Amino acid sequence: MASSEARREGRDESPEERADRRWNELLQEVRVAQTGVQILFGFLLTVVFTPQFHLLGPTDKAIYVVTVLLGAATTGALVGPVSFHRLVTGHRLKPQTVAWASRMTLLGVVLLLATVASALTLILRIAMHNTAVPWVVGGLVTWLVLCWFGLPMWARHRYAEKD
């Protein structure tokens, strides 16, 4: 019976060791996401200072503002785990920290999806000037949802251990 319990758990580790391992895995994931968000957000911040920005119509300027706000919110969600960890370190809250940091990271990925969709909408409206923009953006957002959420959820369901 002990071997079936170990197999169900997947690893022979204490709760503290598991929290440490999960924290390290989460940090690697956040590093990847933060890099992309920082590049995207940095680019977005410079757009308003270009001469062409003032030629945009009110709709495109509104989309830009929404995109920048989404980028800021994404940055906050993906930097949040670092701040959370720093403020609770030494208070024996590692499992709780991992849980909250994981939630913030997932929120950051959702916000990143919204930021990318908004940025694509703005850029493609300017580049294409046609009614295909919502379809192209919708197709790309669908692709990202499948890659970022659909496939992992399918794998989770497909390969879940049957008790």
Rank of each mutant, 00 (worst) to 15 (best):
F84S: 03
L93D: 00
L69R: 01
H85V: 02
F53T: 06
V145M: 10
T131M: 15
T46A: 15
Y64P: 01
L69C: 07
E25D: 06
L70Y: 05
A132T: 15
I39T: 11
A127Q: 13
A2R: 14
W23Q: 05
E25N: 00
W154D: 06
L27D: 05
P51D: 09
A114P: 01
A160G: 02
H157Q: 10
V133G: 01
A160C: 02
Q96Y: 12
L78V: 11
A160T: 07
L78T: 01
E9T: 09
A132S: 15
A73M: 14
L124E: 08
S118K: 03
V109H: 05
N130M: 10
G108H: 02
A73D: 05
V65S: 09
T67E: 03
L151A: 14
T75K: 03
T97P: 00
F84N: 09
L113Y: 01
T97C: 02
A72K: 05
I63S: 08
I123V: 15
H129R: 13
L124S: 05
R31G: 01
F49M: 08
C147L: 15
N130D: 15
G150Y: 07
V48I: 13
F43M: 12
C147H: 08
S14Y: 04
M128S: 10
M104F: 15
H91V: 09
A6V: 10
N130F: 06
L56F: 14
S102M: 02
E25F: 01
L151R: 14
M104S: 07
P81G: 12
H129F: 13
W143R: 06
N130R: 04
K61Q: 13
F53H: 09
A119G: 04
T115L: 10
N24I: 06
L122S: 06
L146C: 13
A117T: 14
T97S: 11
F53Q: 04
L70T: 07
V88W: 10
L87D: 03
S4V: 14
Q28K: 03
G150M: 07
A127W: 11
M153N: 04
V141D: 04
R18H: 00
R31C: 00
G80T: 09
R7F: 14
E29L: 08
E161V: 06
F49Y: 08
V66N: 01
L122A: 04
S14H: 08
L122T: 03
G76V: 07
K162V: 15
L93H: 05
V82I: 14
A6W: 08
G138H: 08
